[in-house]
Nucleic acid binder design. Sequence first.
DNA 1: GAGTTTTGATGTCTGCACACATCGGTGTCA
DNA 2: TGACACCGATGTGTGCAGACATCAAAACTC
Lengths: 259, 259
Amino acid sequence: MPTLWNGASQSQFRLESMSTSLHHRAIENLGTRIITGELPTGHIMLAEHLEEELQVSRSVVREAVRVLQSLGLVETTKRVGIRVLPPSRWNPFDSQVIRWRLSSDARGAQLRSLIELRSAVEPAAAELAANNAPAQLRRELVDIAHALRDAGHSGDAQKFLELDIAFHSVLLSGSGNEMFANLMGQVAETLTGRTVHGLMPDHPHEGALQWHVDLAEAVAAGDAATARAASEQIMRRTTSRLSGTWTDQPRVFLPVRRS
Amino acid sequence: MPTLWNGASQSQFRLESMSTSLHHRAIENLGTRIITGELPTGHIMLAEHLEEELQVSRSVVREAVRVLQSLGLVETTKRVGIRVLPPSRWNPFDSQVIRWRLSSDARGAQLRSLIELRSAVEPAAAELAANNAPAQLRRELVDIAHALRDAGHSGDAQKFLELDIAFHSVLLSGSGNEMFANLMGQVAETLTGRTVHGLMPDHPHEGALQWHVDLAEAVAAGDAATARAASEQIMRRTTSRLSGTWTDQPRVFLPVRRS
DNA sequence: GAGTTTTGATGTCTGCACACATCGGTGTCA
DNA sequence: TGACACCGATGTGTGCAGACATCAAAACTC
């Protein structure tokens, strides 16, 4: 009886929590289940079946499926149904997909991918920022670096996290490359995830704090080479500190898709 | 009179070509117009208005708007309508967004972003591939590099393009990082765009051909440092060859979004 | 100016017609 | 008799139309 959504009821409670639109919850539900593997590759669903399973109407299901389709999670075929696509078809840069993967078994693999991407991008961003960033962003970066060092010394974990995110955000924005700047959100996820999961030491590494200051001052001075070097130092340390979380994750070598 | 879509008719012909679904064409239409700026930031549309403008039904409009919403191009607000979001909210990694930008005035800026991203990522991918790629991919890479050199010498532009795409695809796949591997599609866009727009010389640079071979053989030998160095050479040259196309494009320094 | 009502847009539900890929039966030919 | 091509039935996504629910902006009242 697909009636109104009336708070706490229904034993087959599939659309968790409230305060978001129905189609959004449907996306969340299906996306999560696909990425955790509960709905495996090749699994076929029928729109009609989803209606009663999720207790929503056709329009909600259809809009949700459209979005999942644009994320590469499913494809629709007439006379067949809605087919779950293999992970190689998922859009690994979509922030929803990243979020879902971070809260699945593939968390380690997703973290590794993100760290590798950051390790490649941040030094380049540092270089670009040193060459191109507007004066105000350079000043801001220096201020944040100093505040970050202070917070590290005083052991204020919450403030340290905020400043850490701000630092890398400003750096990436300062590159003047909108793709780099957009990684900010993902970086924030990894950083917050790190503290939440207790991977941060009580007092951050003294060298790392100094490298942040060095990086900021190199950017301010327009010294691209030094900025890159400092960024590489930071990323090397970050990588080595986190690499323990994905030692058991096998690498996946995607097939070369020729369309 | 929103009746069936009957081929060539309608003077206000907005949904171009056929053979794709209506909602897909609606996405294409709106996405293009938003990114070219024909529908500027803050512009407000009404679903009802879109229905008659595109000559499609409510459900088609709604599904298209949902997808555009997930791409960060629009937001919907009750009592207001469908609002076009500023470029800083667009998902710059989505392949549709990239494609739309490549065929807009911002083409130069998009190319620069992609090249900068490639320049950061490919050397890292080369390093990872040298350390982790399975034997078969290494062999394949060497074969392609040699074929690429031959094609370069013989001046077969079409074959050269195919092999060039294949080379970078295999390299990125060989990194074992699904985000790197996924850049493949975007790389293909830039490479094809380059030949189509007549930016390729008749005979590719001899040094570049050799660097591809060096890179492949370093990966095959597991020599990460050499592989990275060769990749950096290639990207430096690619950058310098293409930088002319975006000299006039201003860099955009996105605001740091703190949610 | 604070609280209340009205209004107008999206959100959701439903029934229907159509397009079309798949499957199975039928007919043809060797 | 068996293999193969054809063709229509079937079932599913796609698209359409209209209704009601919801909720936030805007207008209104006090």
